[in-house]
Design a protein around this nucleic acid. Structure first.
Lengths: 234, 234
DNA sequence: TGCCCCTCTTGATGCAGATCAAAGGTTCAC
DNA sequence: GTGAACCTTTGATCTGCATCAAGAGGGGCA
């Protein structure tokens, strides 16, 4: 792989926006990779901004410190498929090859931690434990992608939306309320539907008494009957 | 992970059907994993038979010696999504966890090479090179799954069939003829369509002069215009 | 040779979800 | 504070693919 990465100007990503005192904690939070001692800093992205683009060189790997990130692919005519949503603690942008396979954007104002990819790679070449950590993370991504292929290829719109809610529930629900950071369009592009169909499915679940909306924005959802919701997702 | 795998009866998979003299060659062909010296044998599966089932313990990893394999997931009502087709040389059934995430079946009479998973795992724990080999293979699978999510979520039926032909072309075409081992139903379940829609798309491409059928079975295809075919797959 | 089964194609019809459209609510820039 | 842009819902209509249906090879086997 590339070995010249240390030459690149890494000062452009100096941590200027990190919260005071957050650095030591950050070091302990790059998950299992913490045993690989590598360069780490923080960076902040405003809502809607691009973190990296598809086919760009993958010089860093990222972890969401707070906020939310979507990764997507585009067809030449603009059709979009979101591959995953990344929430606090998630690692994304981990590539084995030299370039990113997705575009990553901040869904809301988001702080990420950065790690030099090549330094990690170098460690992995000699440290089997680090290599196994990378393997575990990649396997987690693969498992998710495999489940999502089944959803995209064979599930109905209601099943997809039910599956989405069940996937987000443990990740986003706090104090009984699920606060979705993403728009209906994002959900639609994740589930291979249109935003209207997502909206109708949510209204339908609301009508069935399976969920309730809180506040005005329709992005605060309360799951009232997880049992029936799970029955809708075959 | 599990460490008791050496206790399990591995004699049940003794190589009885391997071609004489094929063993030494086989050992040199488990791709990059050849450096990990592990148990290896061959086994033959008849057309349509199951090689392993979803959620079964993953005691072995497999390589297609000859033939073709499909891996799929099922919904409770029988809807099927094929995740990948595996052809000669391909490795499948590689899991990081303890169980298989797909069911694998032989599409035609197929010979596979087997390798004890746990012995490999043991090697990977200490040998970073082997661990990186596993990472590379898993990444290859992930990349494929990511591309397939885009296809399943956002492409039209004609685009899907075009993409399928372009994917199989370099793998199956010999002497200008692509000999598909799988049925229209298999293709449909891979592409998230019905077999009728796949048949219509192929007929349409035939009518456009982009492909021709050879013989009677409709599984021998000649690609006549790869340029226009590629233009159909956005 | 002839029959059955399996695969594939093709046509007719149906429907889930896409598209088109409109209106109310929220957020943000100025 | 006001207007513009965006987000979401809901209704009407359209359409691509699914479903239902029929029939034509082809291959295996008695």
């Amino acid at each position: 792989m590339q070995t010249n990465c240390l030459k690149q100007g890494e000062t452009m990503f100096v941590n200027i926006n990190a919260h005071p005192g957050s650095r030591p904690k950050a070091l302990g939070q790059l998950g299992e990779l913490s045993r690989a001692k590598v360069i780490l800093s923080e960076f902040k992205y405003n809502k809607g901004t691009e973190i990296f683009g598809e086919a760009e060189p993958a010089d860093y790997i990222y972890q969401v410190a707070n906020g939310a990130v979507r990764t997507h692919k585009l067809l030449s005519d603009g059709r979009r498929q979101i591959g995953a949503f990344h929430l606090a603690g998630d690692i994304f942008g981990l590539e084995n090859g030299a370039t990113h396979r997705f575009t990553a954007e901040a869904i809301v104002d988001t702080t990420v931690r950065l790690m030099k990819r090549c330094s990690l790679e170098h460690v992995a070449e000699t440290d089997a434990m680090v290599a196994l950590d990378l393997l575990n993370m990649t396997t987690t991504n693969l498992r998710h992608a495999e489940e999502h292929m089944l959803l995209l290829g064979r599930k109905t719109s209601l099943e997809r939306v039910a599956a989405f809610l069940l996937e987000m529930d443990p990740r986003l629900t706090a104090a009984g309320v699920m606060a979705l950071p993403m728009s209906r369009r994002d959900i639609a592009d994740y589930l291979g539907l249109t935003l209207e169909t997502v909206s109708r499915a949510l209204s339908h679940l609301h009508g069935m008494g399976i969920l309730g909306f809180l506040g005005q924005t329709q992005r605060q959802i309360v799951l009232l009957d997880r049992i029936r919701l799970a029955e809708l997702d075959l």
